[in-house]
């Protein structure tokens, strides 16, 4: 026979899903929040986004070149990391800090642990926490807003001082905060897109946001408006929809995702209400990332046909 037939183990067809396709969907889902951020915070926000994405992709490409690994920037995960990091930074951040943050996310958190799929914690979240601690100034106080470019306090900081921001401002994101975290409407549109595309399931975001709502409701003296403000302000939505749901660092079963969301919601509220930082979302996810392997082993599916006997 002159013609060579391919031999391989079944299955011989594939669904067509790919890592790059999933990452592309995440980028598309983040587009509304990015656009909103640029509208709200101006061209400086665009610069931060471009710089974080470019440096994240650049560092990953460079690392692969240096250690002679197969090039992985095509899977778009570095671009997602860069974009998520940027959206979690204030628009007036010094540009060199963006580059350092990207370096930390892509090289230290991801590449050194073995690259995509091998990192223990979420790169963008960890880089954000690193920057929060290392460059204290970006912490909370001095966020710019669109209206007059005069720095204003974030809603969480306002609430810590006893005033409640207007709901429409929270929904549209017309207040201080990181580039991508303020516009709730844009984030929810992105979340809906990810749900429709089945990139994420509802379990984790709903458990995370629901727990935060409930805790805030109880802490705020059964005040729905207060609880709603707590959900819509700070980095909760972007974190619950886009960052906590990172496949690599969150549990894979439905119950695992719910446990992760519950835990992250509780830690977030603990920090918000009792901690010294006004925002606790990043720390909450980071801590739950570390617990993920345990949650995974607690929530394994029961093997069909194995009765009550669990391994």
């Amino acid at each position: 026979m002159n013609h060579q037939l391919k031999l391989s183990v079944s299955p011989h067809i594939h669904s067509g899903r790919s890592t790059a396709g999933i990452m592309r969907d995440v980028l598309i889902a983040l587009a509304p929040a990015t656009v909103a951020g640029v509208i709200i915070f101006g061209w400086r926000a665009l610069l931060v986004v471009a710089l974080c994405v470019a440096s994240s992709v650049g560092f990953e490409a460079l690392y692969n070149l240096i250690v002679k690994r197969e090039q992985t920037v095509g899977d778009l995960s570095a671009a997602v990391t860069g974009l998520l990091l940027a959206l979690n930074l204030p628009a007036n951040i010094p540009l060199w800090q963006c580059v350092v943050g990207s370096l930390f996310a892509v090289i230290i958190v991801k590449a050194l642990f073995g690259g995509i799929g091998c990192n223990v914690v979420n790169p963008a979240i960890t880089a954000r926490v690193f920057m929060l601690i290392a460059f204290g100034t970006m912490a909370t106080q001095a966020y710019p807003t669109i209206v007059d470019t005069v720095s204003s306090a974030t809603p969480l900081a306002q609430m810590a001082q006893g005033t409640t921001p207007a709901l429409t401002d929270l929904l549209l994101g017309l207040h201080g905060g990181a580039i991508g975290e303020t516009c709730a409407v844009a984030l929810l549109i992105g979340g809906a897109y990810l749900l429709i595309r089945r990139v994420i399931s509802w379990h984790l975001p709903v458990a995370f946001i629901g727990t935060t709502f409930l805790f805030s409701f109880l802490m705020g003296g059964m005040d729905v408006m207060h609880a709603l403000s707590m959900v819509l302000s700070g980095g909760l939505l972007i974190a619950a929809i886009f960052m906590a749901t990172d496949y690599v660092t969150s549990p894979s079963t439905a119950w695992g995702k719910i446990i992760f969301g519950l835990g992250a919601g509780l830690i977030t509220c603990m920090i918000r209400y009792f901690g010294t930082y006004p925002e606790g979302v990043s720390f909450a996810i980071l801590l739950m990332n570390i617990l993920t392997p345990y949650i995974d082993s607690w929530t394994k599916h029961k093997v069909f046909g194995r009765g009550g006997k669990r391994a």
Binding site: T72, I116, G117
Partner: peptide, 23 residues
């Protein structure tokens, strides 16, 4: 018969969430 390139596992959980037997 085209199959995509094999890349690293991203722990997405699709395999365990589609396995009829919960494996």
């Amino acid at each position: 018969a085209a199959l995509p390139q094999t890349t690293a596992c991203i722990r997405c959980g699709s395999c365990t969430n589609t396995c009829p037997f919960g494996l």
